[in-house]
Amino acid sequence: MNPPVLIAAGGGGPIIPNFGGNGHAYACEQANRLFCWGWFSHNWSGTLWPALRQHVVLVLIAVAIGFAISMLLALLAHRFRPVEQPVIAFTSFLYTIPSLALFELLIPVPGLGLSRATAEVALVAYTLLILFRNILAGLRNVPADVLDAARGMGMSHRQMLWRVELPLALPAIIAGLRIATVSTVALATIAALVDNEGLGVPILSGINDYYFKTELIAAGALTVLLAVAADGMLVGVQRLLTPWSRGRAA
């Protein structure tokens, strides 16, 4: 059963081989193999690479905005305890909404529609709970004696925050960033439902293709690799920023 389906490419979609004359070049596709390297390299620069880049941008924006919001809220909750509960409740609520539902529910919101903004709003929403909780936990876990000593030496609130609390909260903050980043990379594939960019686009197109799975596998693998790379990078950043926790028994 040879797949004529393969030819049905849409504008802007991946270049789908046309099985015209030189069948030799597309032997893999015609044999319906699991993964065709030829297709992969052929579509790398036109489809996969741009999708990967868009994906990175989607994730970076989402995590950056999510981090900024969470940091503000966490600092607020650190100073004023009553802020914590409502923030936890609201962000947990957002976190509970399944991704498919949240993306769809944002579409009719005025100013959003089918756009990157919609995708970002949803992605940001999912980062808040994790980031807020980790930052706050990090700030709260600074040992009391250290704080007492800092105050006793005459540090102002601001100096304590910058010189003592934030540095000591760094491991927890970065742990939160790792989780948020990795899950946003995975979640951003679903953003393709509302925003025609990122690795979700080749994934959805690969899913719709009943026979030819190279595209799905390639894009899926790139997503996982991206997540792993981002995670590794953040681990590196943490090593760099927290020299004191190095070589400490776990």
């Binding site: 040992p143 004696d145 250290v146 704080l147 007492d148 000593a149 800092a150 105050r151 006793g152 030496m153 005459g154 540090m155 102002s156 003592v164 540095p167 000591l168 927290t242 004191w244």
Partner: peptide
């Protein structure tokens, strides 16, 4: 001012409170 005063008074506590990150 509190902070100015404290910078002029040495303060040692039982748990020491050294900054673990420094």
């Amino acid at each position: 001012p509190e902070t100015e005063l404290r910078r002029e008074i040495g303060y040692v506590i039982q748990q020491v409170g050294l900054f673990p990150h420094q």
